[in-house]
Design a binder for these strands. Sequence first.
DNA 1: TTGTATGCGTTATCAA
DNA 2: TTGATAACGCATACAA
Lengths: 339, 339
Amino acid sequence: MNIGEIARRAGVSRSTVSYALSGKRPVAAATRRRIQDVIDELGYRPNATARALKEGRTRTIGLVIPPAGNRLSHMQLDFVAAVVDAAARVDLDVLLSPSGGDHDRSFERLVSEGRVDGVIVMEIRLHDTRVDRLRQAGLPFVGIGHTADERAMCWIDVDYARLIGHSVRHLADLGHRKVALISRSKELVASGYGPALRAREGFTAAIAERGVRGVEVTCGDDARSGQESIEELLRAHPDLTAVTTINEAALPGIQRALADAGLAVPSDFSVTGVAARLWAEDFRPPLTAADVPALEMGEQAVSLLVQRIAEPGTPPRHILLAPPISLRSSTGAAPAVRG
Amino acid sequence: MNIGEIARRAGVSRSTVSYALSGKRPVAAATRRRIQDVIDELGYRPNATARALKEGRTRTIGLVIPPAGNRLSHMQLDFVAAVVDAAARVDLDVLLSPSGGDHDRSFERLVSEGRVDGVIVMEIRLHDTRVDRLRQAGLPFVGIGHTADERAMCWIDVDYARLIGHSVRHLADLGHRKVALISRSKELVASGYGPALRAREGFTAAIAERGVRGVEVTCGDDARSGQESIEELLRAHPDLTAVTTINEAALPGIQRALADAGLAVPSDFSVTGVAARLWAEDFRPPLTAADVPALEMGEQAVSLLVQRIAEPGTPPRHILLAPPISLRSSTGAAPAVRG
DNA sequence: TTGTATGCGTTATCAA
DNA sequence: TTGATAACGCATACAA
């Protein structure tokens, strides 16, 4: 069933049906009614493909997610859900593309076949071939995270340097003299993953500022790795009394390893970091942490993209979020003695 | 840039370019080369929208996920990832639709605007209006879970009755005399959520068969609810020594509440259930559970849908999975005394 | 071996 | 107030 069928049954031309639907041209009340009756009866909806071809836009955005191999973290998941929800609210559909490498057919379809009006890219690297490709294709896009040339693209990101700096100072103020940063996986850091590098910056600066000792370790994005990281840290650094992390997925392992070592949080050992709120609250005891507002970020990313699609020429906007650290129960005064 | 531009630059007609691309008509080697050179130079890819309009299919499938309000469980997440991955492997794109209620614009777009060739629907209810709508629209679809009239649709599902039955018998064999089933949320159960109802069936049958006592409770899909469920169960049933569950998201809470109550797993208390494998392995101690093969299910769902799209007339196929229970460390002999 | 012409379903311009 | 028609970019039947 198509617009011609509706027109035939209502005894009008196709253009009149189209105008009755869009309201872009006045249609006599009686005619409009007749058309609407037929439409209601048949349950007609204009074909999205034909409309997209004619209008030159698809009313669809692409969301490029990390490939399924590495399972998504809660934060990433929340972000996907937020994007999909925010897009639905403005009647945009979301096309998902699991994409990591360069020779990715799904991603390539997205950017070069005109399937979407714009793209949101997650997990941006400092030098990201996907960004290069999108720029070359002239497709509007928004990054979650940004490349080395900050000003050249539109992005929304979390200020990891500042947040990790905050958390280190918080720990130092509580009397901790040696603090570890549990970062993301070795591969990710090596490939130039911005958040990890900026977390290191913030860590190093705060360590120096407060004159405490610091040790940074990489850690896979899973509980097991978190557990191993803590075990190794405790072994190598008997005087360690606190960790801060940007590795959300490692938290359950961190929790376990500390329990196994007989260390109570926060009386024997403090834990803090950057994590999605629900995740922080699920920690035991509830995690003192900067709550990454994934839902808000998703919403803002969609909003930025919609603007960018509407006015591709304007200078790219950036949003750098630095949510406050919520004091919960996982940090406390440094223990007098340990080890 | 379009096919006409390529044709012009290569000095051939548009149809020749089209045939050179599709290979559906022989093209002289020299001509083909000339065309390919132009295509490579300009990076041309046929417009997906125009192709879809012409061919009458979009090479896109829809994935209807639960609305973002209730955050997705790991199992659901794994499933989404699996579907997206499996679809990408056969060059299908995936359009995401967060959809719960009936008045859902996103879902309505999916079914009535010809945006997709077929749909995969998650979290099917025994009486599901979305299924009715899809059937009415004549759009091929595959359900994860099935409606009351099993034979009327194409689905893939987990045999919760059998799996929960297994786990109860396993517990009974270990000497447990009173077992609780921790189900999904009250609302979900009330709305006729198949897995919860079938889990109940299996539970009731196995309880009766082995002559043990059973108690069933509903529980929200989050850690806090899991914790509360255990606390209440322990209070109301001091003789309870084991639980089985289909509520994956409640597991961390179950774990905590037991630890808080000073109950060691499995020496004091046994826990078992149905969960995604990685989730089960993350439990502490590793969970004796039926591992829901979410990745495999996603792959199979895509495969079923592709078949269904190709041959809409064939009788609907069903796949009922009953993965074996993996013995890990969370179940053991019933304690001699408790309470 | 290649070119011409038509139509997919829509929107929008031009004409009445 | 409405209708006829062109065009979006492509694939393909038909012609040469």
